[in-house]
């Protein structure tokens, strides 16, 4: 079987979706861990931190060569996931020329498992906004104020967050983004593993539970950031 045949077959395409999905899940773990550093500011930890831990972590991510290389990989992964996702959605819809008068609806499957295209689109819109808020600002402009720790100058991303999340509207959009992500993950997490071939029932049950846990905890932690910033829970 040629590579081209493999990757253009229905399962090959899904394999790409599953693999990139799992890759993005791993990215989310890193992202949420870095972001969680803002909670170092919570009074119960160290109210004097003033975003230092977060800024240092963000600087590490932005300045390490290996991670910068991985960043390209991440973008390729996201792109593949998006392009392939849309291609599959279009093809799958086209497989039924004449639709039903009455639909099966939720009697056979969860609504979010049938709405991965829609949820993915919402996440994509959110992603564009989000990259505009932070990533492009840090990478391509000088608009971010600097801060210096131990003689190393870096962007003060922490302050940037405070500025961005001052707007209640932005906070609301971020929360909606996180909800979309939660539902996308609720199906996507376990589905990705099924797609790459995990068929052992024991593992499938484990991965499904893990997936639900992941899809609740990670988006929740993400959503807490704008909320915490907006309401000044972290200084």
């Amino acid at each position: 079987m040629k590579w081209s045949e493999f990757f253009t077959s229905s399962i090959g395409k899904k394999f790409v979706m599953g693999l990139t999905g799992i890759f993005l899940v791993l990215f989310l773990i890193v992202h949420v861990s870095i972001n969680a550093c803002i909670f170092a500011d919570l009074p119960i930890f160290n109210a004097e931190d003033n975003g230092r831990m977060f800024n240092v972590a963000a600087h590490f991510m932005g300045s390490t060569v290996l991670i910068r290389i991985l960043e390209y990989g991440l973008f390729i992964g996201i792109l593949l996931h998006i392009v392939q996702g849309y291609a599959l959605t279009v093809k799958n819809r086209a497989a039924r020329g004449v639709g039903y008068a009455v639909n099966l609806g939720n009697r056979g499957s969860k609504w979010y498992s049938r709405s991965m295209g829609l949820l993915g689109t919402l996440i994509l819109l959110f992603l564009i906004l989000h990259l505009g808020h932070f990533w492009t600002k840090a990478r391509f402009t000088d608009q971010l104020s600097p801060v210096t720790y131990n003689g190393v100058e870096m962007h003060d991303m922490f302050t940037r967050m405070k500025d961005v999340f001052a707007s209640p509207l932005v906070v609301l959009v971020y929360i909606l983004g996180c909800i979309s992500l939660a539902y996308h993950l609720a199906h996507g997490f376990q589905s990705a593993f099924r797609t790459v071939g995990v068929h052992n029932k024991k593992y499938n049950i484990l991965l499904t539970s893990l997936g639900y846990g992941f899809s609740i905890i990670v988006p929740l932690v993400f959503a807490l950031m704008p909320i915490a910033m907006h309401f000044g829970w972290v200084a």
Binding site: Q190, S191, T195, G197
Partner: peptide, 30 residues
């Protein structure tokens, strides 16, 4: 079309064929 693991097939199958067969198929194919 291709499979998105929604599980609707398994839910309506008169012989209760398990969705895990699809996962096995994916593994076999890959």
């Amino acid at each position: 079309g291709s499979c998105t693991n929604t599980g609707a097939c398994e839910a309506v199958c008169p012989k209760e064929i398990s969705l895990s067969n699809i996962s096995r198929l994916n593994g076999e194919y890959i």
